[in-house]
Design a binder for these strands. Structure first.
Ligand code: MN
Ligand code: MN
Ligand code: ZN
Ligand code: ZN
Lengths: 152, 152
DNA sequence: ACCATAAACGCAAGTTAGTTGCAATAAATT
DNA sequence: AATTTATTGCAACTAACTTGCGTTTATGGT
C-alpha cells in the first residue's frame, strides 16, 4: 500500500500520460483514456468491456485494438487467456502475478508465488533451445465455492 | 517408452475408437481421424493444421470445431494459448505438461515440473473463494537460440 | 442381420472478432 | 507558429467461429 501526499494527483508510474510518453507514444486523448480505464481496473477485462467503460470517451474499435496491441508490445499491458470463449483479456501490468479463475462464473482471484521463478529457472536449465525466458503465464482453473454450491 | 506386442496394433489408451467409445461418443469416421491426427502429433496444433493433416479424410469445418470442443470438454484434448495470433491450439492430453514457446518462430519445447503442484496447493490454501482446482496452465515465453542468433 | 434411436454430419447462412489501407487529425519537437 | 510523425476514424475486408436444420451413420437391442 502506497500512501500519496494529497497534493500529488498520482504517482508518476500510474499516470497514463506519463507512462505513454515515457514509452515513446503520444499521449492522445484516446490512449490516455484507454490506459486510464485499465489502470483503474483490478483485473483483466475484455476489449468490449474496455470500450463500454470508455463511455463518452469511446474510440473507434480499430483505434482500441491498435492501442492495446501497442501497449502490450511495450509491456505496459498484458494479454491473458482465461479460457472463456475467445475474447481477449487485457490488464495493466503493475506487479507480476497469476490468476485463479472460476470456469463457471469467471470469478478471478489473483495470486503470486516466487516458486514460479524456480520453475522457470529449472526449465531453462533443462532446455536445449532456450537460453533465457522473457515472460510466463500461469492460470489455475476451478469452480468457486459459490458456483459449487449452486450447481448442486 | 512402452513396448507393444507386434500383434497388438495399439495400446487401448492410444486407440482413437476406443477412447471415443469409452467417453460415450460414437467412433465416427470423422472423429476417429481427427483424434488420430492429434494422437500422432507431438505438440499442440491449430484447427487449420488439423484440417490439412486430415487430407482426404477432411471433414467439414463445422464438424471439426464441434468435435474438438466435445473432446476438450471430456478432457481428451486440451486447448492451449501460445500467444500467437488468435488461432486456437489443441493437443492430445497424455501426461500433464507445460510449454516453453519461442515468441518469434513459435518453436515449442515441452517440460513438466512437480513444483507446479506445490504452487497450486499454495494458491488453494491462500484462496478465499476456491476450495479445489481442476486444471492449470503454465507457459514460458522467450526467444530460442536460433532466432536470437538471426535477429542479431 | 435388421431396426430403432440418438449422436454426429454437412450445407447454407449468419455473427463476431480482428485487420488493412488511406486520407484527415492532433501530439510533440523545433 | 510551423514541421514532423504518430495516431485516428472510416470503409471495406478477412478470418474465425456459430446456429439451425434436414440427412446420415454408429451403436445397442431384437
Ligand atoms: Mn491480474
Ligand atoms: Mn504439449
Ligand atoms: Zn464461480
Ligand atoms: Zn525461435
Amino acid at each position: 500500500m502506497v500512501s500519496l501526499h494529497p497534493i500529488m494527483a498520482k504517482s508518476a508510474d500510474l499516470d497514463p500520460r506519463h507512462i505513454l510518453n515515457k514509452s515513446g507514444y503520444k499521449a492522445t486523448k484516446g490512449r490516455t483514456c484507454i490506459l486510464e480505464v485499465l489502470i483503474n481496473e483490478k483485473g483483466p477485462i475484455t476489449v468490449a468491456e474496455i470500450s463500454k467503460k470508455l463511455g463518452r470517451n469511446k474510440v473507434d474499435e480499430v483505434t482500441l485494438y491498435r492501442a492495446l496491441e501497442a501497449l502490450v508490445s511495450s509491456g505496459i499491458l498484458r494479454k491473458v487467456d482465461l479460457q472463456r470463449g475467445n475474447a481477449r483479456y487485457y490488464e495493466f501490468v503493475e506487479t507480476h502475478h497469476h490468476h485463479f479463475v472460476c470456469s463457471d462464473c469467471g470469478a478471478i482471484e489473483s495470486f503470486s508465488d516466487k516458486l514460479c521463478e524456480k520453475i522457470v529457472k529449472n526449465a531453462l536449465k533443462n532446455s536445449n533451445i532456450f537460453k533465457k525466458a522473457d515472460t510466463h503465464s500461469l492460470e489455475i482453473f476451478g469452480i468457486c465455492s459459490k458456483c459449487a454450491k449452486q450447481n448442486r
